[in-house]
Computed example of a mutant assay.
Amino acid sequence: MARTPKTWAVRTARDRTEAPARARLLDAAETVFARLGYGPATVAGITTEAEVSRAGFYVYFASKEEVFRVLAVRVRDAFLAAQEVPGVDTDDVHAVARASVAAFVAAYARHAALMPLLEQQARTDEDVRALWQEIRERPVHRHARYIRRLVAEGRARPVTEPLAVARAVGAMSVEFARQVAARRIGHAAAVRDVTAMYLQLLQVAPREDEPR
Rank of each mutant, 00 (worst) to 15 (best):
A81T: 06
F68P: 02
S53D: 08
A78S: 13
P86I: 04
V101M: 00
G37P: 05
P86H: 03
T160R: 00
P206N: 07
D89T: 01
R129V: 02
S100H: 03
E84F: 03
H111M: 09
P40K: 07
T48R: 13
E84A: 13
R212M: 00
Q83E: 12
V59D: 00
A21K: 07
A103I: 02
Q203I: 03
F61W: 08
P5G: 09
P86F: 11
A9W: 01
D27T: 07
T4Q: 13
E49D: 14
V191Y: 14
A188N: 06
A9Q: 11
F57A: 06
A189Q: 15
L163G: 03
D15R: 01
E65W: 02
A181W: 03
A205S: 14
T17L: 08
P158Q: 10
A55C: 02
A97R: 05
A107F: 11
A23I: 05
T124S: 15
H111T: 04
V32C: 06
A29F: 09
H143T: 09
D91E: 11
R16Q: 07
D91C: 04
R207A: 12
A78P: 03
V75R: 01
L117A: 06
P86R: 04
R149E: 00
P211Q: 07
T42K: 08
P139E: 11
G39D: 14
V204M: 05
G39R: 11
L118H: 05
V180G: 00
A190S: 13
G186V: 10
P40H: 02
A177S: 12
L202G: 03
T7V: 00
V191W: 14
V43A: 05
T90W: 12
P139C: 13
R167P: 04
F176T: 00
A144S: 13
T47P: 11
S63A: 10
R155A: 11
Q83S: 14
R54Y: 06
V128M: 09
G37E: 07
V128E: 02
V101E: 09
L131G: 00
R54V: 14
M197P: 03
S173Q: 11
P158F: 05
L114Q: 04
V105I: 14
T195P: 01
R136W: 07
H111W: 08
E65Q: 06
A72W: 00
P40I: 07
H94W: 12
A23V: 05
P206Y: 08
R129D: 14
F57P: 03
R11N: 02
E66S: 09
R207V: 01
